[in-house]
Design a protein around this nucleic acid. Structure first.
Lengths: 254, 254
DNA sequence: ATCCTGTAATATGTCGGAGTAATTAGCAGA
DNA sequence: TCTGCTAATTACTCCGACATATTACAGGAT
């Protein structure tokens, strides 16, 4: 258990100037604090059971008002990361209480050095859900869905995955499939994970050039869905996820 | 777009007495507000795009301080339900921005009249994930996992599912399976959904007695996992989920 | 040794005000 | 009449202080 809070100074102080100049226009102060704290927890800087020393002391240390600190804590509490009780202080909750599928939490988890085991867990989940989604999409898609997928596909071809536009097209393609399942729960889940994993894709991108051309595999998924063949769609999507896992794993090991 | 806020008075006023007497000991004020507001949004009382009239006016109407109101809004914002911007007020975000897998959001969704389509979506997701989890568990489980499952099973036999203890044992059984997958992401996801769905189970409970004895089906799952047979485990779990869906659907139709 | 009780520490709830950003409307020019 | 800019209003954001309630902890009694 850490007693004092080590080196959390300078939340957002690139320059020593005014606060408003530092934080972006859309970014609120408590949001920045929550981000900072959330990353600190997800990165393991604070372990479950650790106590974030007293509210007043902490806010003082961060050089923000208690209100801002309290609102930040409120956010973390809403995501199940911490729990604060009178006298006891604010403690980091055990991992199983964390809301790991929250988009923001996911982002924090991937912001620092992502935990390899957790990434593998996430891909395992993807490997379960995405093929099943493709299976459903093959049955339930309509003409509009197919058109959107087709457009995204050609956009992926035009720009490569090396560009931001290309990656956006990739996201659109997958989102179109999810949307075609007509299942909101599936959509939300996969969208959250997808966003985090796409971050990993950028990560990978930094490491080296594309390992191989992913377009044909995407086309196979599209063809199967267009043909209304659930089994083939699931199989093709399975290949896609496996491929992504391979690439990511090899990129993270270096 | 609603302009004024209809009938949100008396957040927690059963009696006209002191506030502290009404809200439970562990329940904080802003938590109660967030609960109230969250339920109002999830139940469709506020539609996406609706604006919750001015902070001051609203806090006044709820008879709480602005700080409490703000902290409640903070919670909702963290869950992606609303977004507040200066001058524009606090607006309800579109549904696809909602954090539907958040345990609390799920609870709110089920608190009122649960949306049938959403329940179906959730069960579809369960039907995808849980058999896959059973498949993994069949391979990765160790002796301790089996012991916990066995204990939960016998507890389910002792108390029936009609009692709270029996339902707790049911939860334990499923959690043990999830834990045996050694996949935190899977565990968190299914735990969230399971909690909400268990609520539905209580719902069902009210409607009528148990439709049939679920114990043998649970035993089949256990046997397959104990035998280390992935395919059989997945199949048996699929049966379990289908059964639950059937029961819930028929219970909700009345 | 265990239980109880009092106290101090700490988080929670409240308030009002100053600051800031954005929408809206009003005005000027083409 | 339409377009572009300016200004004022409005609502959120942040702040610091105060009052309150809860609880952990310690010290004493049984």
């Amino acid at each position: 258990m850490v007693k004092e809070n080590p080196s959390l100074q300078n939340i957002e102080a690139e320059n020593g100037g005014a606060t408003k100049a530092v934080r972006g226009p859309g970014r609120r102060l408590h949001g920045a604090i929550a981000h900072k704290l959330g990353m600190a927890i997800l990165s393991g800087h604070y372990a479950p059971g650790d106590v974030l020393s007293g509210e007043v002391a902490f806010a003082e240390e961060l050089e923000v008002s208690r209100s801002a600190y309290r609102e930040a804590i409120q956010v973390l509490t809403a995501k199940g990361l911490v729990e604060s009780r009178p006298k006891a202080g604010t403690r980091v909750l055990p991992r199983n209480r964390w809301n790991l599928l929250d988009p923001e939490v996911l982002a924090w988890a991937f912001a620092g050095e992502p935990d390899i085991q957790f990434v593998r867990d996430l891909f395992e989940l993807r490997a379960i859900v995405e093929p099943a989604a493709a299976r459903l999409a093959a049955v339930r898609r309509d003409k509009d869905d197919l058109k959107i997928m087709k457009d995204a596909l050609s956009a992926m071809r035009r720009h490569t995955l090396a560009t931001e536009a290309g990656r956006a097209a990739d996201r659109d393609f997958h989102n179109a499939i999810l949307h075609a399942t007509r299942n909101d729960a599936l959509l939300v889940l996969t969208a959250s994970i997808g966003a985090a994993v796409n971050w990993t894709t950028q990560y990978k991108q930094r490491a080296r050039a594309l390992p191989r051309n992913p377009i044909p595999d995407h086309v196979r998924v599209y063809d199967a869905i267009a043909a209304g063949d659930p089994a083939a769609a699931a199989e093709a999507m399975g290949v896609l996820v496996d491929l992504a896992l391979e690439d990511t794993a090899s990129a993270m090991q270096r």
